Simulated scan of single mutants.
Amino acid sequence: MSNPTIHVAAAVIIRPDGRFLLASRPADKPYPGYWEFPGGKIEAGETAYEALVRELDEELGIHVTHATPWLTRQFDYTKLRVVLSFFRVTAWQGEPHPREGQTFAWQSADDITVAPLLPANTPIIQALTLPPILGITQAGDDIAGFLPKLDHALTQGLKLIQVREKQLTGSALSEFAQAVVHRAHAAHARVIINADAALAQQIQADGVQLTAAQLAAIGSRPDLTLVGASCHNAAELDLAEQLGCDYALLSPVLPTASHPGAPTLGWEQFASLTSNRSIPIYALGGLNAADLELAQQHGAHGIALLRGAWQ
């Protein structure tokens, strides 16, 4: 007999400085003293968003004015299955204050200072380490001319880069990728190598971006810190989740200069495909930096940019 399931709306309340709110569980609830993201049970007749607004008013005394859907995670406790619908809350009225005896702490994803965390929230902390913008290299035939653009983007705060230069092979690709890794790591940014896990390991990059074909054929997750997947439909997103990928790219959202006239997802289909997914998804295709907010409103973790990352 399967355990009963409850559905919960959970809030990642994020300040402008990027820090987010964790709350300790009161003594009269299961897992007392454990730290979690605020939220609570979705009642009959409520949407997840309606439950989020109600719970944050009841628990924290704040009124949500801007929240976007993000991840859905399932966690099996000893006698209970919990399905958590996470929202990123970036604007609210009022100052959070404990209305149920909680203790609060503003935290950073790479420096958690409270413990123990409720087990279901650990993957959410890991997802929060991924920045909202992923830049995909566009060196083409001008490697020397691209590197200053990379340096500029790093000074502007770019923190995640995918090396994707299909015109390069062998030592030329290795040398270019090493140059990107050297510059990125000096700026505390991470580098993903497209389609080549062996090269990523060899040059001490941070991860690999699997192609859709690799995703379908691979038997196990590559032994790298970050593993992403290039996806175009629900079946490929399913495979990315099953493999335990850290994120996926979903494309093409809008028409692109490189593939004029090709079919696109559009924002409504993108939102449908990303709904209830357990891993962060970047929108890709025909986007620029100004589209970030729109993408997040449709369930994206962030956006992946080619030309737009280097302008």
Rank of each mutant, 00 (worst) to 15 (best):
F270P: 05
Y77E: 15
L215S: 09
Q269S: 10
L199W: 09
A309F: 10
G170I: 10
Q202I: 00
G286L: 12
H298I: 07
W92I: 07
H182F: 13
L117N: 08
A144E: 11
Q102K: 09
L215N: 00
A186V: 08
A240Q: 02
N288S: 14
Y247H: 05
D28S: 06
A290Q: 15
G45E: 01
E50S: 09
R25Y: 04
A120V: 07
A197N: 06
A44D: 04
K79H: 15
E241F: 08
Y77F: 15
Q201S: 12
K29D: 00
Q156F: 03
D223N: 10
A309L: 03
N121P: 02
S220L: 11
P222R: 00
C231D: 02
Q311E: 14
A212E: 13
T225G: 07
C245S: 09
T155Q: 12
Y31V: 00
I125D: 05
R15V: 14
A235H: 13
F104R: 09
L249A: 08
A216G: 05
G61R: 07
H188L: 06
A262C: 04
I42H: 03
D28G: 06
D246P: 06
A51V: 09
L21A: 04
Q102P: 02
E268P: 08
P69E: 10
E58D: 15
W92H: 08
R54V: 11
